[in-house]
Simulated assay, not measured.
Amino acid sequence: MKFIVFKRPALRNAMLWAILLFVVLAYRENVIAVFSSKLKPIYSAEVTTSEIGLTFDISWGEKTPEPILDILQEKGVKATFFLSSPWAAKHEDLVKRMVADGHEIASHGNRHIDLNTLSPGEIEREIMSAHEVLQQITGQKISLLRPPNGAYDNKLISVSQRLGYQVIQWSVDSLDWKRPGPEAVIHNVLNGLPNGHGAGPGDIILFHASDSAPDTIKALPVVIDQLRAKNYQLVPVSQLLKSATKTWPPESNLPPLEQTGSS
């Protein structure tokens, strides 16, 4: 008679668990991305106020930013400027004027590339290299990120959250970068695409202050006046979020994480 002896695989199981733990720790952002299918940036906010977030992206050029700053100063409006760090480093005078005028500075990253195509480590380096430049120039705490081209995935959002950043998109797009003409830019903001979803309380408006969007200079005063005529208030994104009871989509309501980068 043959006896079958079952050997306890304790050592093998321990090794497998150790390997799994190593993978989770080494590639935690990728693991989060696999098991969390609903990480989203903030597109808009639910508010009980009349506030609308006004934002501008800048990655290149020097002709458009100053006229836009003049308009905002004349109208007494504060906004959020999402700046790429190479542009900011070359135009410190304009960035410092933004700060002096009371505007909020946020990050548009370092290189103007789709961050969701990078590894977690590369994403962190891109965010933190921009963070260091922008914070050194402005003296502000930089905690909002609009990824270049609006490109994101779970990996990007989880890395951003770990670094103390909230990822901000938009709910109203001026499409000014397409150079459709000032009237079209005004229409896109006030009436929306499709028609019927023009800017209202809780929305975040996307403009560009790069030289690729010259129509913004003529469109912006009209947009400000028309929105004010509806008793709406244009504010920086951080102020809008302070007034928010929640953000949209629901998956963007993530608890803020402690910032681990430079402060």
Rank of each mutant, 00 (worst) to 15 (best):
I123N: 01
A229S: 12
I186C: 06
G198R: 00
A209M: 06
P65N: 06
D93V: 15
A88Q: 09
E29S: 05
E251W: 07
H103L: 05
K40M: 11
P249A: 12
K155M: 14
N188I: 03
V99K: 11
P201G: 03
R97D: 08
D70E: 06
Q73D: 14
I142N: 03
I32N: 11
H103K: 02
H187N: 12
F82H: 00
G181Q: 02
I58E: 06
S44A: 13
D153L: 10
N30G: 01
G196Y: 09
A130S: 08
D203T: 01
G102S: 07
D70A: 14
D173P: 13
F82G: 01
H103I: 03
I204K: 08
K218A: 15
V172H: 05
I123F: 05
A244W: 12
A106R: 00
L25F: 13
D101C: 06
F6S: 14
M15F: 14
L118E: 01
K38H: 13
P65S: 04
I123E: 02
S238R: 14
N110V: 03
L190T: 10
H91F: 00
Q239A: 15
G139E: 12
G196N: 11
S50I: 08
T55K: 09
L134M: 00
V237E: 03
A14Q: 10
V34Q: 10
V222I: 05
W248G: 12
G181A: 09
Q135W: 07
K38D: 15
P250S: 13
R8V: 07
T245K: 12
A229V: 02
N231I: 06
G164Y: 03
Y152L: 09
P201S: 02
I68L: 04
G200M: 05
P256Q: 05
P182H: 06
F3M: 12
G261M: 12
I52Y: 08
S50Q: 13
P221F: 06
S262Y: 15
K178L: 09
D57C: 11
G121P: 11
D153F: 10
I71W: 00
K155N: 12
L234P: 08
N13L: 14
W177K: 10
H91G: 06
I168M: 06
L175S: 03
N253P: 04
V237W: 03
I58T: 06
V133Y: 04
T64F: 00
L175P: 03
E251S: 11
N154E: 14
T117G: 10
I71V: 07
L21Y: 07
L156Y: 01
S44L: 05
I157D: 08
L118H: 03
I4P: 10
L134K: 01
R111W: 03
V95K: 10
P41F: 03
P147D: 00
W177P: 14
N149E: 07
A130D: 02
V95I: 09
W60H: 06
G76C: 00
N154V: 05
P182V: 00
W248S: 14
L227C: 04
A14E: 13
N195W: 13
Y232V: 02
S158D: 08
K178V: 05
L257W: 05
H131F: 00
P65F: 08
S59Q: 07
E132Y: 04
